[in-house]
């Protein structure tokens, strides 16, 4: 989490995946500050792991809540103090809201299992970058008339059959509100 990376990208498919999550932006120049290795989905908490690891994950997962977004504060000891103070409270809140150890054991959110055998890309990649896939293919479809691309929105439905059980669960957890479903039809 300490290694902050400045990244400029034009093409979402040509980037360093080890650099962590990058904001979507097809066709637009995006310049975002991203935190390396702080991907909550890539590093879910493991049951039975040491307290140190767990704390590490919590620190990474909730930097804004703990006021640890400023790299200078992180480098100094202030953020650490804050995290220590907030850690107990957060853990208690998490246990109370998500059913405790069971939720932690299965990762942050339990998603519906996909019907198909394999996705277009590895799961880790899809978790972070599926929105870029969709944005890219939407440009191609609407403006160029390329239909039935493999990465088309329509193709997702064949494996991830339920929007509520798959898409919405994770979107709710991550507190993102994509407006795809306001117009596009996807089975509930």
């Amino acid at each position: 989490m300490q290694n902050l990376i400045e990244m400029t990208t034009n093409d979402p498919f040509q980037r360093d995946e080890s650099a962590g999550r990058i904001a979507p932006g097809v066709g637009f120049r995006t310049r975002r500050r991203v935190t390396g290795g702080s991907d909550v989905f890539a590093n879910p908490p493991k049951a039975g792991s040491s307290g140190l690891t767990r704390r590490g994950w919590l620190e990474q997962a909730t930097p804004s809540k703990l006021g640890a977004t400023d790299p200078e504060r992180i480098k100094g000891g202030e953020a650490v103090k804050l995290t220590r103070f907030g850690w107990g409270f957060l853990l208690a809140a998490l246990l109370a809201t998500s059913g405790g150890a069971t939720a932690l054991a299965g990762g942050p959110v339990e998603l519906q299992k996909a019907k198909g055998e394999a996705c277009l890309k590895p799961t880790d990649w899809m978790r972070r970058n599926h929105m870029d896939f969709l944005k890219h293919s939407r440009e191609d479809t609407v403006r160029e008339g390329v239909r039935n691309a493999k990465e088309s929105f329509l193709n997702c439905k064949s494996c991830h059959v339920s929007r509520e059980q798959f898409c919405d669960r994770c979107h709710n957890y991550a507190s993102v509100k994509p407006d795809c479903f306001e117009c596009h039809n996807y089975p509930k």
């Binding site: 191609d140 160029e144 008339g145 390329v146 239909r147 039935n148």
Partner: peptide, 10 residues
């Protein structure tokens, strides 16, 4: 109308 378009679009 003619055959469907090629996969490379319009």
């Amino acid at each position: 109308i003619a055959a469907p378009q090629a996969p490379d679009g319009a």
